[in-house]
Design a protein around this nucleic acid. Sequence first.
DNA 1: CAATCATGTAATCATTGATTACATTCATTG
DNA 2: CAATGAATGTAATCAATGATTACATGATTG
Lengths: 225, 225
Amino acid sequence: MSIVKPTRTGDREAGEGSSAYHHGNLREELVEQALKLAEEGGLSAVSVRAAARLAGVSPAAPFRHFPDKMTLMTAVAEEAMRRFRAEIVLALAQEADDDPMLRIRAIGRAYLDWARRNPTHFEIISSRRSIDFDGSPSLGQENAEIQAQIEALLLEAAQRGLLRSNDRHLIQIAARALVYGLARMLVDGHFPSWQVADADIEGTMAKVLDLFVDGLVKERPRPEP
Amino acid sequence: MSIVKPTRTGDREAGEGSSAYHHGNLREELVEQALKLAEEGGLSAVSVRAAARLAGVSPAAPFRHFPDKMTLMTAVAEEAMRRFRAEIVLALAQEADDDPMLRIRAIGRAYLDWARRNPTHFEIISSRRSIDFDGSPSLGQENAEIQAQIEALLLEAAQRGLLRSNDRHLIQIAARALVYGLARMLVDGHFPSWQVADADIEGTMAKVLDLFVDGLVKERPRPEP
DNA sequence: CAATCATGTAATCATTGATTACATTCATTG
DNA sequence: CAATGAATGTAATCAATGATTACATGATTG
């Protein structure tokens, strides 16, 4: 019992012995190739046909697995979101300090870092014109878990008396807006007009994040050493 | 001297007397129709051909005025940006108070209000994949003037000793990121997952803006009445 | 082994951005 | 005032893409 369904586990490049008519793992490979296309050529480089080409199948084959392009892009977004959240979870695990505001900052840094390194993937999970966000439980859940994490940290911060404002929901929206805005400015190419050189982007974003977090906490000289 | 070039000033709908082969004002009308298409059907509804159709010319005609679609979209963005900044200038003129932070908040509100009422136009001037921002002096200049306005207000705030931080450039980036993030979350459809009803969006954004501005200024009980 | 269902292909459409050769009108000038 | 050349518009055509339909192939299972 509980035997994993074989499905001729993916690997087709190696043996090549299979009959080669049926791919065996097309759905997942299409998602993978679409991610690759996005990474290499931006959002406009992602087409159903190009993904099919890379997967070595006909232009119509993808439509056996996805009713339309939007559904494919939604699956791509799900994979991107999984990676995105994994990185945030990792960053939180690596943050030793238990100061809730420091932990929130760590989330923000991981968020911005991932967006900087995966601009098009970030764009895919962000712009909800090319995906069906509401129709994907996976996307909704991953997103909700990130929010819940921050919510919990804000609650703890409030209990420790760190916060200036009592409206935590508002703080949360503000925090997300700031980080989303920074990431979007990055992928939308706004930084050149802000005299921020490419090499300085990481540092600048970190400083902006600090400035924002400082504005949230009650004014105190500074955490004494 | 200084006689305005006639060019058969636009109006073609009325008289209809003209030969009807030459449009007379096609370039501007294409921009106008593209703006209308964006307004009514979102970014994906904007096509060169649709604009040509609405203008009553052949599919190839637009290419006499714009070498490619991106150039048309850039002209569309220029018009949208003009309207955008006009609204900000108006809001500043209507803000009687001379407190620089209140004036900055007024800019933020006008920004968010315009984006909320013109989501696709906002998207067009924001996403720099469909336009050639750097190739348009007009876009660069309007953008620079908004930035200069905020810079001046921040300088004044600093001189009055209102600011927590001394790094005004960083404050400016943070402010833009917050407002850009809010506007982007709006047009990208993120608010439903934040339990913010459509009717509350305006109020919520205003409160987030206040929260942010409060975080920038030095902690003082409150501006006494 | 045969039936059936999942999965892939071929052929075809409509839409779109773009180009090229040709047509028409406007404006300048002899 | 007509002729001529520059602007401006059209027709025809291409290649790429999303999508659909009829058909082919292979895997699963009774």
